[in-house]
Design a protein around this nucleic acid. Structure first.
Lengths: 335, 335
DNA sequence: CTGTTAGCGCGTTCAT
DNA sequence: ATGAACGCGCTAACAG
């Protein structure tokens, strides 16, 4: 049906091996014949069969991306960074989303990636995940993104430090009742959010502030979730005067809840304003005038992709890269 | 290095052919031996080589996704819908982003997809795109998403109708100077946005309203772009009293610009409120209290994926599916 | 520099 | 129901 390298060879009057060499740009081919072969091949509209090529070489020319979610701002930014770096390498991108809550017999990441990628980028999987251990159990080069695991290469921010920065900023404003809106229920070891909780507690204890558990709510990493969480916090006997949200999108919801309650947002504690800070520096946070601890998500993607490629084409690595975060002070914490 | 089907055959005391049949669940295999083989295979932790399998069968078991952008809410929602449908089919997902403005010798979508997918979902490519024509020139099954092209299967909304709904809604409020913030410069045939422009003009002409070109601005489909565009519109000698934005994110920016100008947003024209309506029903539009024409993005992804699969495993189709939009009236247009 | 030979690991005839 | 043999299209190793 489709053309084979053999057809091109016949048309060019050379052997199949020479065509293969010419098409791959190997050096041991007379430039003249190489050009001729390439010309003929494209004239015939020929392209090699990746399957055959993979079978013969053992290399797949494919990089896998494993992620638990794809419908989030975070992922889309990560992916944009990854794409940017991987583009020049001319590799295929195999995408797989793990469904956390659905062990319904569908194959997991490790089996979906197995034998079909030269390496994989694993986003946001807990370090104790079965899929992760299975992947590293095979020889597959893996780079973790957003989490860390002993003996594995990874790129992430310092979540604990980031949280400290955020909460310190609130404390500097004079706040003592600082609430926390987290994504999932914490503490849960192996999750990055747990580090953020630790950072939050670090600041409270360093400043001798009460670690009031009634000041913690879950926001599911969504705006409606954040809104709901803030509603709950505001209904406490002694509501918080400031709140740290583990994601900007939850903070958007919190802002809304505060406004609905007829309260003001801002950094002027004396005037009764509630200070709000988020985490991510989401694209829209400028619009919401939301203070936040920014993580360079796109850069995380770039860095992880680079690390993975150097692992795949070069030598194995267990490098752990920590990318710095930065504080963006906006209206939601400005006096 | 890796195990082959042969190793399993030896361990089970059968031939490689039988193992192949057993592992694929073909009927012509004694149930007892089939179970034994499967048990042994998983005990050896064996998995077949996709490359060899593809070479032998000619099928790739892979679906391609071609898209010009990946860092957008639209894409992430589309993808979530696609994923949902494709998951049970157990196919690989090959992702390729076309870079519109970068013909720098890097291979285009058609060559990246060639010989490696059984079919492709093409998102947001103009119908006159070289890559698109190239893909359909090969035998590759293609389903378009968000655009249409003669003779090709596609899933999209009725952009013209959607725009009419939005602009009619503004006109009903009594507005006569209705501005338009588009993503890219229009008119540009083959782009869905062009249909939205047409819908906008439809309403103006039906109601004998002036089609003032100074009331059209470009917003790049981003919030900052929308903000900038609205700034420009407000600085006109005779500024608009209402605005239709081709995306919600641009509308967010517009809301901000209006607020900064000290003007009010809403549906009460008599009170001098500026009416704003967007397009998409983005997740955050409820928070912004933004009226909008919603498109069921996730559903678009699902529908397109279904269509593609029926094309790939079943018979070729050129079905054109139009998914309805719906009007969401919120505070930005409520009197 | 080029051609010949021999797999890569499966799926698929054909027999039996 | 099972096995033997061949071929899928390409690359690698060895000659020359």
């Amino acid at each position: 049906m489709a053309l084979t390298i053999r057809d091109v060879a016949d048309a060019a009057g050379v052997s199949a091996a020479t065509v293969s060499r010419a098409l791959r740009g190997l050096s041991n081919v007379e430039p003249a014949t190489r050009d001729r072969i390439v010309a003929i091949a494209r004239e015939m509209n020929f392209s090699v069969s990746p399957a055959a090529s993979r079978l013969a070489t053992g290399r797949t020319g494919t990089i896998g991306i494993v992620t638990p979610f794809v419908d989030s701002w975070y992922f889309s930014q990560i992916f944009a960074g990854v794409e940017e770096v991987l583009k020049p390498f001319d590799v295929d991108l195999l995408l797989h989303t793990t469904q956390p809550r659905d062990p319904s017999g569908l194959p997991g990441a490790h089996v979906r990636m197995r034998r079909r990628v030269d390496g994989a980028l694993v986003i946001g999987l807990a370090a104790d995940s079965d899929e992760l251990t299975a992947m590293s159990a095979m020889d597959m080069p893996v780079v973790l993104l957003g989490s860390r695991s002993p003996g594995m290469a990874s790129v992430s921010i310092d979540d604990r430090l980031g949280a400290r920065i955020a909460v310190s900023h609130l404390a500097e404003l004079g706040h003592e009742r600082i609430a926390l809106i987290s994504g999932r229920r914490l503490p849960a070891v192996f999750l990055p959010e747990n580090d953020r909780l630790a950072g939050y507690l670090d600041v409270l204890s360093a400043r001798q502030l009460p670690a009031d558990k009634s000041l913690r709510e879950i926001g599911l990493f969504t705006a409606p979730g954040g809104e709901h969480a803030m509603d709950a916090l505001l209904s406490r006997r002694r509501p918080p005067t400031a709140v740290f949200c583990m994601s900007d999108e939850m903070a958007y919801g919190a802002l809304r809840a505060i406004a609905r309650a007829g309260l003001a947002v801002g950094g002027n504690k004396a005037a009764g304003e509630i200070a709000v800070i988020g985490f991510d520096n989401h694209d829209l946070s400028g619009l919401f005038d939301l203070s936040t601890v920014g993580q360079p998500v796109r850069e995380l993607g770039r860095s992880a992709a680079q690390l993975l490629m150097s692992h795949v084409v070069g030598s194995p690595t267990t490098e752990v890269r920590i990318v710095p975060t930065d504080l963006h002070v906006r209206g939601s914490t400005t006096p």
